[in-house]
Design a protein around this nucleic acid. Sequence first.
DNA 1: TATACTGAAGACGAAATTTGTCCGATTGCC
DNA 2: GGCAATCGGACAAATTTCGTCTTCAGTATA
Lengths: 158, 158
Amino acid sequence: MQITRAGEYGIMGLIHLARRAPGQVAMIEEVSHSEHIPKSFLAKIFQHLVKVGLVRSVRGAGGGFVLARDPTQITVLEIIEAIEGKIVFQRCLQDEPECEHFGGCALCGLFEQAQDGMREVFMRTTLKDLIERQDRMEAKGPTSSPITNVATLPEAAK
Amino acid sequence: MQITRAGEYGIMGLIHLARRAPGQVAMIEEVSHSEHIPKSFLAKIFQHLVKVGLVRSVRGAGGGFVLARDPTQITVLEIIEAIEGKIVFQRCLQDEPECEHFGGCALCGLFEQAQDGMREVFMRTTLKDLIERQDRMEAKGPTSSPITNVATLPEAAK
DNA sequence: TATACTGAAGACGAAATTTGTCCGATTGCC
DNA sequence: GGCAATCGGACAAATTTCGTCTTCAGTATA
């Protein structure tokens, strides 16, 4: 019950891209080094993002990756699902037409509800939002309590 | 990014207990067989539930397990967290005081938000709710579409 | 054209987690 | 005491995660 590192790395990589001037490419090497992500692993993750159309790749010397859309138009949900596949709590929600839940599908209904709640959060958060949040936190001072009361109240933060 | 089978089995096991007359014990053997859950696995899962105080165990001949509280007083969240541990998307939300997220903890904030959304759903759903939902579905006929529009509207259901 | 530099794609493998199984110890009823 | 049940931990198979490596393909530059 965790977001995998792949998903986490993907988000961090895209944040890195989004922070550059629009249209400016960044090499895997650069992103990997600056974000402390294993290079080969990041390369593979970016391939998913290219395939889904979130970033464009430029091959050859002087190549690299660029964000394909504006950071305000990329949601965290897109990123995560591009990398980890569709967020799904239970097998029977997956695709099989017939549910194998012996307890009846009350469970499926519940799980669906829960996962929708989660997806909703990721869907309404864009890359741009993340960057702004990051900047705001940095401004407040890095030595303050790192976790508490950061963003439990979405409305207030916005 | 899935609820594990252990968690699923745990919920189904408790539903089984809850359906019995209050105070009546059920053996692992019975629950396991009726819910199609591997016996040894279920036994281990129930141990967690005993430790947390959701069920009481009766040892010796004629023993088994009983629900320790009323089904209206047991939330799905308690069950899941008893078995899988606290629901936590990211390492830095876990317990370590210092966050290791190089991207700044904007990510942690977001993940916390998402996981809270999910926990909220599980927290407001009790064993009793699940059973009622199950009964309602059974009444409507087992051959109908298994997934759709079951419980996406919590208020309406209640 | 040759070469150096970049990503693309997939095979491979180590490590961690999930999903169980097994067996002896313990506890309590008869 | 004997039987019936859980307790608790060691063990193991399967799956997933995490990451590396190698080979190939495309592009810019000399």
